[in-house]
Write a protein that binds this DNA or RNA. Structure first.
Length: 434
RNA sequence: GCGAUCGUAGCUCAGUUGGUUAGAGCACCUGGUUGUGGUCCAGGGGGUCGCGGGUUCGAGUCCCGUCGGUCGCCCCA
């Protein structure tokens, strides 16, 4: 008979997280949350599933095969596990728009789902940070969401030599494309082609360029000139269109992260709803998938029933980020660790020690201390100190013969020093280093 | 959804042209007798060889299917 315990595996593309994995997750999420709060963002969250229509209205019915959708037994409403946060965010903003400050700065951390085959850097369930500024159409807002992402990566130990922010601008690219011969109506198709130009075989790329009457060589030359042009606008044909991009460059320099960023008009992002600025963050040698991606979506809040509202946001997932951090040796045990016990209490085995053992532990816990003890039967102090050290406790508290004088031994497990402490002062003694 | 490749203990892996009761290291547990550290010594638990079928006197080993992992494609939030 098949045992149920063996019959089940975790579903494809999901992760079982054991204590060391949780420690890594907390390390990353703390960096996300603390940094977002430091930058003045308020935390929100939404449901992990939404009405299916929330996603099809924006992306069309083709997206359905890429998400987990379902109906409750006997029901007739279609739901979907959320594949991204932006529609929820736009919905939530639209519902409260009249009461919200301008700009509104929100961040959110939670799980997201997609129904595709897992591969490197991409699972069916992952955790993502979303950081958005709604109601501010200035390049300063674009720079601000990039700054949060950069500060997070810096806090996690990465440098501008490890990761690069690539910034594009769809308006500028559209202008350049038109000047290179692409008809207005063909722009979306041309943007899509640019997004995947590196992944296409050469002959197919040139065939599709021909269809769009796009001269790629001319495009590259002009795009490079635009990207290189300075704030004074010395460049050529598209200098008026590039105004926003140059404003953004100034803002990035002003807040000290210009060195992390490269303008690259080849960056257009796959998603259809971005309106002008788009960005993605990659490992510097381009080794992994994007660590983060985002852009400006000035039409989306209105599409979800709110007032016309400009917005810009960036999303960062945990999977690629963890790969990059691991590769750079930034997830070592000294930086990623499980909660450290304040005390490991040891009974040396005498009757009075045994009597006071559990009440003392309970009392220390009520005082807010993280306290552990052995579940083994041995009272060998040597073995139990070994266990205390393995638990990475700061102090060992030994209940021994001194108990007759109302004292316990407190041993600092890092320094190796120990002293006797009146049992009534134990909690206070454990609250500070000896 | 499509393709390639892999699946032996909690982990990393051995396992001969198919041949008796499937092994090692690490980890875990116990002991080395009564109060001071991750070492050392001895011992122990733990595996339906992912699962299901087939070939064979005999399958961890060969064949088929299936479920997972990994890496690509599609797509990218």
């Amino acid at each position: 008979m098949a045992s149920a315990g063996r019959a089940f595996q975790s579903p494809k593309g999901t992760r079982d997280l054991y204590p060391p994995d949780i420690a890594v997750g907390r390390h990353i999420e703390s960096a996300w949350r603390d940094t977002a709060i430091n930058h003045g963002f308020d935390e929100i969250n939404g449901p992990t599933f939404e009405h299916l229509g929330l996603y099809t209205v924006k992306s069309g019915p083709g997206i359905v095969s890429e998400l987990f959708s379902f109906r409750r037994a006997g029901g007739d409403v279609d739901y979907a596990l959320r594949p991204e946060f932006t529609p929820t965010l736009a919905r939530m903003y639209a519902a409260q728009a009249a009461a919200l400050a301008r700009p509104t700065k929100w961040f959110s951390i939670g799980p997201f789902f997609r129904a595709e085959r897992p591969q490197r850097g991409r699972l069916r369930e992952h955790v993502q940070l979303n950081t958005d500024i709604i109601g501010d159409d200035s390049p300063r807002a674009d720079a601000e969401v990039v700054a949060v992402a950069v500060d997070i990566l810096r806090r996690l130990g990465l440098t501008e030599d490890d990761v690069r922010v690539r910034i594009g601008d769809r308006t500028v690219v559209g202008g350049v494309l038109k000047s290179c011969g692409v008809a207005e109506a063909k722009l979306p198709e041309a943007l899509e082609l640019l997004d995947k130009r590196d992944r296409l075989p050469a002959e197919e790329l040139s065939r599709r360029c021909e269809e769009l009457s796009l001269d790629l060589g001319a495009f590259d030359a002009e795009a490079e000139a635009e990207a290189a042009s300075d704030a004074l606008g010395s460049a050529g044909a598209s200098s008026a269109l590039g105004e926003r991009r140059r404003g953004l460059a100034e803002c990035l320099d002003e807040i000290g992260i210009g060195g992390w960023c490269d303008f690259n008009l080849g960056i257009v992002r796959g998603l259809a709803y971005y309106t002008s600025t788009v960005f993605e963050i990659h490992e510097a040698k381009g080794r992994e998938r994007a660590i983060a991606g985002g852009g400006r979506y000035d039409n989306l809040v209105e599409l979800f029933g709110g007032p016309p509202t400009p917005a810009v946001g960036i999303a960062m997932g945990d999977v690629v980020l963890e790969l990059v951090l691991k590769e750079r040796q930034l997830l070592t045990s000294d930086v990623v660790c499980q909660p450290r016990p304040d005390a490991f209490v040891i009974s040396a085995g005498k009757k009075d020690a045994q009597t006071r053992f559990r009440p003392l532990i309970a009392s220390l816990r009520r005082d807010g201390l993280h306290v552990r003890h052995s579940y083994r039967t041995t009272h060998s102090v040597g073995k139990l100190l070994g266990e205390a050290a393995r638990a990475r406790a700061r102090y060992a508290v030994i209940l021994g013969d001194e108990l007759a004088r109302g004292l316990v031994v407190v041993k600092d497990l890092d320094e190796g020093r120990q002293r006797e402490v009146p049992i009534g002062e134990l909690a206070a003694a454990l609250g500070r280093r000896t």
